[in-house]
């Protein structure tokens, strides 16, 4: 039983650690990518992977109690609002006419 709990703690640490790395990668991507549209995708790495792993790690670390429930609530909320605000940014940019950067191979534009 004790070993099992220790193992759970180790899993929690790994989750938190990799979640932190994902958040950094998301931020790095939003700094490195060449144009607005690709930066949107980098931000969604933070929004999905980073949030899931960090909250999961904290939830496992705290055991099962009211704290876990609050973490779950934060997670559900970020899951609903994160994509919605990304979509809102993308939609506003699209309406205002910011087009994706031209690639070497393909022309940007709508494709059926």
């Amino acid at each position: 039983m004790n070993i099992f709990l220790d193992l759970l703690q180790v899993i929690a640490w790994i989750c938190i650690f990799s979640g932190g790395i994902l958040v950094i990668i998301g931020a790095l991507g939003s700094l490195r990518f060449p144009d607005f549209w690709s930066r949107l995708h980098a931000a969604s790495v933070t929004d999905s992977g980073g949030v899931i792993l960090l909250l999961l790690g904290m939830g496992i670390h705290s055991g099962f109690n009211l704290i876990t429930f609050k973490l779950l609530l934060i997670g559900v909320f970020l899951f609903i609002t994160g994509p919605t605000s990304s979509h809102a940014v993308a939609n506003a940019a699209w309406v205002s006419g910011i087009k994706p950067l031209r690639n070497k191979h393909k022309k940007p534009g709508i494709d059926k």
Partner: peptide
């Protein structure tokens, strides 16, 4: 570290939407 990187993008961000995006990421962080 991630917050500083996002702040850099917020400071540079050529278009208005880049800035909104980085403010949003900053909020999540």
């Amino acid at each position: 570290i991630a917050m500083v990187l996002v702040l850099l993008r917020l400071y540079k961000g050529p278009t208005l939407y880049d800035r909104v995006l980085s403010t949003n990421s900053f909020g999540t962080q």
